[in-house]
């Protein structure tokens, strides 16, 4: 009598998870799963609790408000993936907007030419930041705090604090216009996001950015032109900030010295919510913009829900912490289940 042992030819099938948990597990395997889940949750709750949330007008104003902060967020997220930060992006946006106003109104220059010159100015400001950081071996945080003062001070010197009015209506379409109900600034945001996402995912430059952010020394030893890529990233952030600034001028119809004042911390928070690591090497501009969507949605529902202005910071800060925690806890839970 012989004893025969049979072995299965295929590995054992893991126990089948319930459908909802299976969906959650699939979401969490996606790097953007957490932020998308938080987004869906906040969106769903907002729809249920406020009759004003899911209206065409509200969606339109949310999309438009997102466009400005979203453009700055894209630039900041590239820098954060690279392991850098630029705290002068708001001031660059403001300076570009004010310069645009001065060129169009005071110098009487063609509005479209003025727009191009403003974008060049923003790019140059970003590039200057990058050159100073790489050539003087300065920490980007410290340098850009100083440069924010320089660019912000230049705005006050140029304007004496007074807004420039009479911006030609030729460019108002860029800030206020709608294409099939979609705000033009939002379309600009999507276009920029598409280009940046393509570069980051599909081109060697994008891979270099992640490599430098993960380990700059190793990237340098591999022969990557680390400084050139860092300067290019700062220039891109400057360009996008200037674009946001000039779109804001087009939206307001005046060049306000306060443009960009609120564009410093929100893009960093948005990027972190969207999964961009503050240490560099991780995350994506798409995730960062989704983080900006969450912040924009929170700001929107705070007003729709009638929350007291004195509680606004507490509520928005709390929801941001919850959104980040939700992502982290969900990943830990699913990891433990696996």
């Amino acid at each position: 009598m012989s004893l025969e042992t049979t072995f299965p030819t295929t590995p054992p099938t893991p126990p089948r998870l319930p459908p909802l948990r299976r969906l959650a597990a699939r979401c969490m395997r996606n790097p953007l799963g957490g932020v998308i889940a938080a987004l869906v949750l906040i969106f769903g709750v907002s729809c249920l609790l406020s009759p004003h949330f899911l209206t065409g007008f509200n969606m339109m104003i949310m999309a438009r408000a997102l466009a400005f902060i979203g453009l700055v967020t894209i630039g900041q997220s590239i820098l954060m993936i690279l392991g850098e930060l630029d705290l002068s992006v708001g001031a660059i946006g403001g300076l570009a907007g004010i310069t645009g106003g001065m060129l169009m109104v005071q110098a009487g220059l063609n509005p479209w030419l003025s727009l191009v010159l403003c974008l060049l100015l923003g790019t140059a400001c970003g590039m200057l930041n990058g050159v100073l950081i790489t050539q003087l071996r300065l920490h980007s945080l410290v340098l850009t705090i100083g440069m924010a003062g320089v660019y912000g001070g230049a705005i006050l010197v140029a304007t004496k604090g007074v807004a420039i009015t009479g911006v030609p209506v030729d460019i108002s379409f860029l800030g206020r216009g709608l294409v099939y109900g979609v705000p033009v600034p939002f379309i600009v945001l999507l276009a920029c996001l598409g280009v940046v996402a393509f570069v980051m995912v599909r081109t060697p430059v994008g891979r270099y950015v992640y490599a430098i952010g993960s380990n700059p020394d190793a990237a340098r030893m591999l022969g990557l032109r680390v400084d050139a890529i860092r300067i290019a990233a700062f220039a891109t952030a400057g360009f996008l900030s200037a674009l946001a600034g000039i779109l804001m001028v087009a939206r307001l119809g005046t060049a306000q010295p306060s443009i960009g004042d609120t564009w410093v911390l929100a893009p960093i928070a948005a990027a972190v919510i969207g999964g961009v690591a503050t240490t560099g090497g991780l995350g994506s501009p798409v995730g960062a913009v989704l983080g900006a969507v969450i912040i924009g949605m929170i700001e929107n529902i705070i007003v729709l829900f009638g929350i007291s202005p004195y509680w606004q910071s507490v509520v928005s800060g709390g929801i941001v912490v919850l959104a980040i925690s939700f992502d982290s806890l969900a990943r830990r839970y699913l990891h433990r289940e696996a």
């Binding site: 104003i61 408000a65 807004a163 804001m248 939206r251 306060s258 443009i259 609120t262 007003v303 729709l304």
Partner: peptide, 12 residues
């Protein structure tokens, strides 16, 4: 006290 922030709140 920023015009664009105030505009956002007015719109909402």
């Amino acid at each position: 006290a920023d015009v664009s922030s105030q505009n956002d709140i007015i719109e909402r």
